[in-house]
Design a binder for these strands. Structure first.
Length: 634
RNA sequence: GGGGACGUAGCUCAGUUGGUUAGAGCGCUGCCCUGUCACGGCAGAGGUCGCGGGUUCGAGCCCCGUCGUCCCCGCCA
């Protein structure tokens, strides 16, 4: 028998009451987290998103409520009217924010019962993801998930407030727009009115935000949903949210300051101080020092140790002499066991280019004691650090172009640096327990979370933790303007075709495309790409040149981007912008290993929503309206 | 498209070389209990070993296929 709510209203949340409230008459509503039945005395833990409060039902004081409580089960929704009472000496619970008090029930209303849940939100052990995703509403009741979404809310709010304070105006752009063939695959929306034609969901509001600059909206931002029909990863969902912004007349540094402003505000909102300005590194330098364009600065970078070897030694070791010899160091790994070595082998990705690694300085010491000692000296660190050498493999044929543009890395050099960089990431992940650099991030995240549990009502966190080495943002600048397609030899834009080249490199657009630097920048943090942006092309003649360099005819360009090229001709101010992944920022701040932990209703690796069971076939008449016939393989 | 891991009770997992009736913890059900808070005690229920096929006297275990979840490569301007 369920009770009606009647005119009852909640006076306090389950996280609000403290010792100072003793004696108050209160009404609490929430879920039954746990029930402890002592016969004539029953304890209920009442849970809502603000916390947990213990309710006492005493048969002598409230026989009716006590009788109901005997039949109450986990996840029932109940209302309690009663008195806040200080718990007796020895029965307080220091692990609970409300542990000094309890509610002595005068009346218990059972507002709704609940089937036995497939897993309990009260449990520490979490169910497998398939079950969690199917019963997402149960999963989201868990304190950890509630906290993740509080973090997300605070971050989004802080970003909006900060950008508004910096003079940015939020403008919405369409979800139903035009398909552009390059880039990611589009999610398409068939048109009923126009047979055989389709809208596309935006991969990003890129062209709209540039047009907003042409429209005079100086400083635009949007917390925008984006859609990309590509295969998923832990940090990639088919729909995701970007903090998207664009501004007129910016220098690159102007945009960096804007981002540093809202990102540090976002971190501050969850109690973490992020020092500004962020460090910067060029793409080439990032490749040299980290072998990747999204460096994780929590661990030491790469060192070129070629000078430790004589030409003869390189020959004996079958190391390609004209390529860098890279040492990478992972602190405090200690001796490698046979098992370690076997496991490490597949972690090295030597597929691209003739590259190999030497994981044992000891072996090197035997044959080449001076060289090994010099390598040690060059990479620094301690004796128990793991030092691995990655170099060109002289026994394999070289792959990739030899051409080296002035001041840039050659393709073969990049192969060595990339192999070393990727290996560094893999080894860092594998030996995380030993080097301890990632644990610092976890510690700060946990401390911030603990600070927030005290203020789950959404109030400002009292804690202000120094980020220290836990969060390491870095700007990566001067990306190459073009990448050469390995198969066709065609030059492709490494960002998008509206990115402006450096003014100084403009005259080499066709003579030496590989040497052209783009005014394109990424923001990386802890080995994760948080976002990327660029100064855009604002002149139609420059835009035409870029299309030409990309081997795109004027007709083709007009066909694809005609509306935009036309817009460029009506007084376009110099402009630029950036987009940061909101989900990824929250993922870092929540200490989550996957975007699914910070997206309320995410999709599986096969892009399925297990809760609503989407996608599904649709009724034949729906397809008929849309002029669509489906043809299934097999 | 490719590689890898996993799939056994509601949940988390164990299950030896292929061998009797497939186990544990938590949860659940019933009874008992007035200071618990991961309450405790007693008793009990609960299994298409993902699915299909094969090998075998005999399959949770071996083989083939398939489905699902996760991670990675490709892909993601």
């Amino acid at each position: 028998m369920l009770d009606h709510l009647g005119t009852l209203e909640r006076t306090h949340t389950s996280g609000a009451l403290r010792a100072a409230d003793a004696g108050q008459e209160v009404t609490l509503l929430g879920w039954v987290n746990r029930r402890r039945d002592h016969g004539n005395l029953i304890f209920l833990d009442l849970r809502d998103r603000y916390g947990i409060t213990q309710i006492v039902l005493d048969k002598d004081l409230c026989p009716e409520g006590h009788a109901k409580a005997e039949h109450v089960r986990p996840e029932y929704v109940v209302a309690v009217r009663g008195t806040v009472r200080l718990r007796g000496v020895g029965s307080t619970n220091p692990n609970m924010a409300t542990g000094e008090i309890e509610i002595v029930a005068r009346e218990l209303l059972v507002l709704n019962d609940a089937k036995l849940a497939p897993f309990s939100p009260a449990e520490d052990a979490i169910a497998n993801e398939e079950v969690r995703l199917k019963y997402r509403y149960i999963d989201l009741r868990r304190a950890e998930m509630q906290r993740n979404f509080l973090v997300r809310h605070k971050v989004a709010l802080a970003v909006r407030e900060n950008l508004a304070a910096q003079g940015f105006l939020e403008v919405e752009t369409p979800f139903m727009t035009r398909s552009t063939p390059e880039g990611a695959r589009d999610y398409l929306v068939p048109s009923r009115v126009h047979a055989g034609e389709f809208y596309a969901l935006p991969q990003s509001p890129q062209l709209f935000k540039q047009i907003l600059m042409i429209s005079g909206f100086d400083r635009y931002f949007q917390i925008a949903r984006c859609f990309r029909d590509e295969d998923l990863r832990a940090d990639r969902q088919p729909e995701f949210t970007q903090i998207d912004l664009e501004m007129a007349y910016p220098q690159q540094e102007t945009i960096f300051r804007v981002v540093e402003g809202f990102l540090s505000a976002a971190f501050r909102a969850v109690g973490i101080e992020l020092p500004t300005p962020f460090p910067q590194i060029t793409y080439d330098e990032s490749m040299r020092r980290f072998g990747i364009d999204k460096p994780d600065l929590r661990l030491p970078g790469l060192t070129d140790v070629k000078e430790a070897f004589t030409a003869e030694q390189l020959g004996t070791l079958a190391i390609t002499a004209d390529l860098p010899v890279i040492a990478l160091r992972i602190p405090n790994v200690g001796e490698l066991s046979r098992k370690d070595r076997d496991e490490n082998k597949p972690l090295f990705d030597g597929r691209k280019g003739a590259v190999k690694y030497i994981d044992d300085l000891k072996r090197l010491e035997k044959g080449f004691p001076e060289a090994a000692a010099q390598v040690r000296a060059l990479v620094g660190g301690e004796a128990q650090d793991l030092v691995v050498i990655v170099a060109g493999d002289a026994t394999k044929p070289a792959e990739g172009s030899e051409t080296k543009s002035e001041g840039r890395l050659s393709e073969r050099e990049i192969q060595v640096y990339s192999a070393a960089g990727a290996f560094r990431v893999e080894l860092a992940r594998k030996y995380a327990d030993r080097h301890g650099a990632f644990a610092e991030t976890d510690r700060v995240v946990a401390a911030a979370a603990a600070g927030m549990t005290q203020t789950l009502d959404g109030g400002t966190s009292a804690t202000h933790l120094a980020s220290g080495t836990a969060f390491q943002p870095i700007w990566v600048t001067d990306f190459p303007m073009f990448e050469q397609d390995a198969e066709t030899g065609r030059w492709l834009p490494s960002h998008h075709p509206f990115t402006s080249p450096h003014e100084a490199d403009m005259d080499r657009l066709t003579s030496d495309p590989a040497s052209v630097r783009a005014q394109y920048y990424d923001l990386a943090m802890n080995g994760l790409e948080l976002g990327s942006g660029s100064i855009r092309i604002h002149r139609q003649d420059v835009q035409a040149k870029i299309f030409e360099a990309l081997g795109m005819s004027a007709e083709e360009a007009k066909e694809r981007f005609g509306f935009f090229l036309e817009a460029l001709e009506y007084g376009t101010p110099p402009h630029g912008g950036i987009a940061l992944g909101l989900d990824r920022i929250v993922m870092i701040l929540a200490g989550a290993g996957s975007l699914r932990e910070v997206i309320a209703f995410p999709k599986t690796a096969k892009a399925i929503d297990l809760m609503v069971d989407a996608p599904t076939p649709v009724a034949p008449n729906q397809l008929r309206d849309l002029h669509i016939r489906t043809v299934l393989k097999g």
